[in-house]
Nucleic acid binder design. Structure first.
Lengths: 314, 314
DNA sequence: GCAAATTTGTTCGTATGTATT
DNA sequence: CAATACATACGAACAAATTTG
């Protein structure tokens, strides 16, 4: 036990949290109580709480106290294209339908788990303590901006930095909970060439890909998605109401759409990019799925981190 | 300016880091220097440094000092199946070939950027400061364990908790840098049915999927991948040498393989799961890509977080 | 290889500020 | 407005890790 005092305190509390002795949402004793319980200075107690905060086990609220984190039920987005619509998850209204179905199913599972548990007299399972956000998924109206392509957009659209582009930005919510931020960039030439709805701040009901096919005959021949994790910027931290301590990162999706329609490949070899979408979601409550070949409809229950973790040993 | 003092200090340093005034790898003044520079107590300076640490901008090393973080060149794993081999990224030796190619290309790009920069006399670009780990990708020999299915495995293999399973665990490195941990679980029945290599602690050269097809006629009809982000457990933090402050999370991949070969669907409707793989990688140096349809061979340069971030505004 | 110097890490005590009930 | 609880800030001392001489 060469562990410093604050770590001993933290690990003691961690044990209590993970064993369920302290339940999600429950208030911990205040700093003065801990000072007595562990015979430590207040600063040392605060170090311990900070260590737990950093690992996402507790959160502190000024004037209220320290609380065991209530984890959020993850929202699962399917990234592979739906064979029927050709639309991938996160695109258009299809995503909303999927989320509604997920939430309904999870509420059922949770209720079932609760009943079984009460019958057997055990303590609540983890699945039961996950918080399901209230409300329906919805999209704010898009905002549209005509501007010049920044480097990271130009590179992906294979145009020159500073070329005319149109960007469509949209915010998504689940009830009152912010869910995702999304910005899609198109060369302005597409709008000039007849796809004028790209520059209107209104939803494109049939989806932009279908709209481009219909109006200017541009068909998407494929797409590529890049997935990465990074710290949120200030805009994102504000929008998602992420804690100030930088503990929650964001998942960033970069989706590039390609076409092989000759008019849009600039004489180069196709496939050529015609749009790029940046989507950002908080990493603590979103998961992705993608499928290949034949697979069952049903998706397994939410991955339980702690258990998987323990199976990770050599 | 209602900002507390430690935040003012932190934001001042953040500005210096992001402007390039303080370069990656550079040592910052020590705490005593900052104490004088900002007329603050040592603890207040330490709060500022802690704030920067949490956001991944600096790291502290006892006895040495505080340093601007050198970010790692991300390793990109393609998750969609290779149309030729049917193997998806992270599976078998194919992943290594891809990584070698990536690294070669990035070294070239970096060298090119450096020459252009020196010609123009500007300051180093971000791409140039990213650290490329030394050495070749390699796999440690697998370890094999015969055990009973834990709940989270049983659920995904649609067997009963406690049923006999074989788990194959493997560690991957790039040079001396730990890259990923992976555990794959199969029902032991597959090995009993003739696929005996599953229980041997040796690489299956042709890949397990091909091996199962060859030996017992089990074909994979599809698969599903789940992607999530979570804090590392102790095993993972040790293996990846992640900082003790919990700042770096891990990407967790859960890949379930399905078969429709009648002997292996237990009389139920196919597709039926026959294996599940858990892969864990540090989230600060790994990215995923997947493709659909026709897409260009070439992958765009690594996503530059900070720039994308600024494009995220409404 | 060891001792000294340097630098961050841990712990204590105390006072005051700010958010919430 | 008062009470409660966490947040910020100061000062001080000793411990542990690392580098330097």
């Amino acid at each position: 036990m060469a562990d410093p005092l604050y770590r001993k305190i933290a690990e003691d509390l961690q044990r209590k949290i993970e064993s369920g002795e302290l339940e999600p949402g429950q208030r911990l004793p205040n700093e003065e109580d801990f000072r007595n319980e562990y015979a430590a200075a207040r600063n040392t107690v605060r170090e311990a709480i900070r260590w737990l905060t950093q690992r996402g086990l507790v959160e502190t609220r000024p004037g209220q106290g320290t609380f065991v984190i209530r984890r959020l039920e993850p929202i699962i987005t399917t990234l592979s294209a739906d064979p029927e619509t050709g639309m991938a998850g996160g695109e258009g209204q299809a995503a909303f339908t999927e989320i509604r179905r997920q939430r309904e199913r999870k509420r059922e599972l949770r209720e079932k788990a609760r009943q079984e548990r009460e019958a057997s007299g055990e303590k609540p399972s983890e699945a039961e303590t996950l918080e399901i956000p209230e409300g329906e998924p919805r999209a704010m109206p898009p905002t549209v901006e005509l501007s010049f392509a920044p480097g990271y957009v130009a590179e992906r659209l294979r145009i020159n930095e500073g070329d005319d582009v149109v960007s469509r930005h949209q915010q998504f919510y689940i009830g009152k909970t912010p869910w995702s931020l999304q910005t899609t960039w198109y060369p302005l030439a597409l709008a000039d060439g007849g796809a004028t709805a790209l520059t209107r701040p209104r939803d494109i009901e049939e989806g932009a890909v279908e709209y481009l096919r219909k109006t200017i005959g541009l068909t998407q021949c494929g797409y590529r998605v890049r997935i990465l994790v990074r710290p949120p910027n200030k805009t994102e931290a504000d929008f998602f109401k992420l804690p100030d301590d930088g503990r929650v990162q964001v998942l960033s999706l970069i989706r590039t759409g390609y076409t092989s329609t000759p008019e849009f490949t600039r004489g180069e070899n196709s496939p050529y990019p015609f749009r790029v979408t940046f989507t950002v979601l908080p990493a603590d409550r979103n998961q992705f799925v993608f499928n290949s070949g034949d697979y069952p409809e049903e998706i397994a229950a939410p991955a339980r981190d702690s258990e998987i973790a323990s199976g990770q040993q050599a």
